[in-house]
Design a protein around this nucleic acid. Structure first.
Lengths: 372, 372
DNA sequence: GCGTCTATGGTAACCGGTAGCATAACCGTG
DNA sequence: CACGGTTATGCTACCGGTTACCATAGACGC
């Protein structure tokens, strides 16, 4: 009877379609649990739990013995069980809509640098902040996963609706964004303006006077920030950005190519172009090649990001670099800050870009640099 | 007494340092649970569970009523609790050591295409298969997380030790790798050889005879595969790859630049170079620029991967394309295959690359193509 | 010697789900 | 109309941890 009953059970769910495969998979062979460790050590689960969580009230030798047993058996507490009890998962989310894979990858690596060895994992979540149901999606994501924390990178890091949502969902977060923030917030700041100013100074020093700025799209705060910094840098040399030499791109190669063609086809074309990012600067390179304009002899170009492509095109491009991986690491570290520090809403860290000089800049044709 | 006892308790962990912040965080306000839904619907937890898991033996109207209540309240079952009971998490891992961020990003996006709406999440795990403790790390990772499945991409996808480990850990996996496999396995196959053969045919048709192959490092199976395909393609036109024109690179820009310089400095330099990937092909571009060798008039170049850089350098590069995002999606789909299909160990899918012709190929100098 | 405090460890309940089994209702059939 | 088989549903234990609360053993002060 027992047997036949079991056999009947084996044929479960006769009309089952679409049940999660997880439910059908064979059981993995069971591993050691906290109960096993407690039994091996001759103590209670509670004591082992104290050791795992580094809680006090465990004798030093007891602690050492338990730790030895844990190490010997390679025991790893189950994050799902711990998370269930803690009402918090051991997952850190990266929410992003950044079109630059190199940037995203470096952020990921930086976050993982910080997570390594802590027992937390990184969950990736791309998004479209202008898509329908964006906020609902995000809410579902963070609530369902009970994320330990979230890192946001541009441009979604500039979306205050999302920040507000994360707060209401009680999900800690750190934003990476450039420095023009009105109120104190929990973020990793990048001083894009300073990098852009450095680019402006360098072009001014080389003697350029007709200098163009190829801006990123207004959706990105960095576009404004870099533009403002560039203008400020020029002003230090008594230069102004002529209105007709400030043109709007989209942070894409294609927009750089199109705007580059237009700028360089003018009779009084600029002798230098500062592009809001390397993608657009690369487009300017192509436009120059098409028109037979030599870089850097006829045209100086500076980009922003110091993407790998900056050294892969010819001539190697001068660009502005941010320590992206380090920024990712720092942002993740910020999630582990003490509650007090987190409540302070102060910036987690600030980064200033550096100008990496290569072969795409030179004095303008028929002109002499003001100094070296 | 009671009160003072509680107050004493509030000062818990007086010398606590290093306890997981999760344990210290305030509790998120509690959400709806399956018990709440059951109460609202006037049924038992078990019945709600059946609805969630699409199990049979629930009356259609009961099911509809429960689904309506779930939708109305935006209830989402807790993946940690489900995972604990299932002994399986709802996480899919991507284990990778691929140096190409564009490739990795597209794989990620493809996997996420497949996971979207299924309630599974993507966890990223870079690795170094030659580092110390590689296998132990991986074992700890997959066992601790009880991963639902893992996607592997080159070159770690070619590591049989890891495949064996995943099997012994009862962790389903799908590998993306090129087609030269000896035994049938659960993988997404890419016919890199066919793409390389197409490149060879094209160069032969244009009339090239002195053709070089710049190989990737032996660690990558794709390097052999592409080389073999290229040689086979040449053979169709009665051509051979001269031993001195097969050189070894490292899939990096720098190696492409160095090998390119050497190849192009020879008195009898090749009129065409097929590089194992776009990074190296870009290095060849730079070497040609340095030496004043024009592309494509003096030198034809074909790369592999169709990376974004292929269209951003000048002249736009002919390259071989694989549908990377689609491959990632397909690999993830493979994890959801029925147990029967999974046990079959048959390939999940196969992809053949296509040759994307751009401006970096032309007939050799002072020669006439054999046909169009 | 006794009450109080501190250090330590045990027990039961719980986190939010799922699995096994019992049971009731329904169905057609001999 | 009793009966076996199928469908629908609920009860209870359990997944692997953590917490609340309690019990006990020494140390200490009077």
């Amino acid at each position: 009877m027992k047997t036949s009953s079991r056999r009947a059970r084996a044929r479960r769910y006769p009309d089952d379609r679409g049940a999660p495969p997880a439910a059908k998979r064979g059981r993995p062979r069971s591993r050691l649990t906290i109960t096993d460790i407690a039994r091996l050590a001759g103590v209670s689960k509670k004591t082992v739990s104290r050791v795992i969580n580094r809680a006090p009230y465990v004798q030093a030798d007891t602690r050492a013995r338990i730790e030895a047993i844990i190490a010997e058996h390679g025991y790893q507490p189950d994050p799902q069980a711990r998370g269930l009890a803690f009402r918090r998962s051991f997952l850190v989310g990266l929410i992003h809509d950044n079109p630059n894979p190199q940037y995203v990858e470096n952020i990921q690596l930086g976050i993982l640098d910080s997570l390594a060895g802590r027992g937390y994992e990184l969950v990736i979540r791309p998004c479209d902040r202008r898509g329908p149901g964006f906020l609902e999606d995000m809410r579902g994501f963070v609530e369902r996963l009970r994320l330990f924390g979230v890192v946001l990178i541009p441009s979604v890091s500039e979306d205050d609706r999302l920040a507000k949502l994360l707060e209401s969902a009680d999900c800690p977060y750190v934003r990476i964004a450039c420095a023009s923030v009105d109120k104190p917030q929990r973020m990793v700041l990048t001083h894009d303006a300073r990098g852009a100013a450095a680019a402006a100074r360098r072009l001014a020093e080389l003697g350029h006077r007709r200098i163009a700025y190829l801006s990123g799209p207004p959706l990105f705060r960095s576009a404004h920030e870099r533009g403002a910094g560039f203008i400020a840098g020029l002003a230090e040399y008594g230069l102004e950005l002529a209105p007709d030499l400030a043109v709007l791109g989209a942070y894409t190669y294609e927009s750089g190519l199109a705007r580059g063609r237009e700028l360089l086809a003018r009779p009084d074309r600029p002798t230098a172009i500062f592009a809001g990012n390397d993608e657009m600067a690369t487009g300017v390179y192509s436009a120059a090649h098409e028109l037979g304009i030599r870089i850097p002899q006829d045209l100086s170009v500076i980009g922003f990001d110091d993407a790998p492509i900056a050294t892969r095109i010819w001539p190697a491009m001068t660009s502005v670099r941010l320590p992206v991986r380090e920024m990712g690491r720092t942002a993740a570290e910020g999630l582990f800050a003490t509650p007090k520090a987190a409540a302070a809403k102060a910036p987690v860290a600030e980064f200033t870009p550096s100008l990496i000089e290569r072969e795409s800049t030179a004095p303008p044709p028929r002109a002499r640099p003001t100094r070296s």
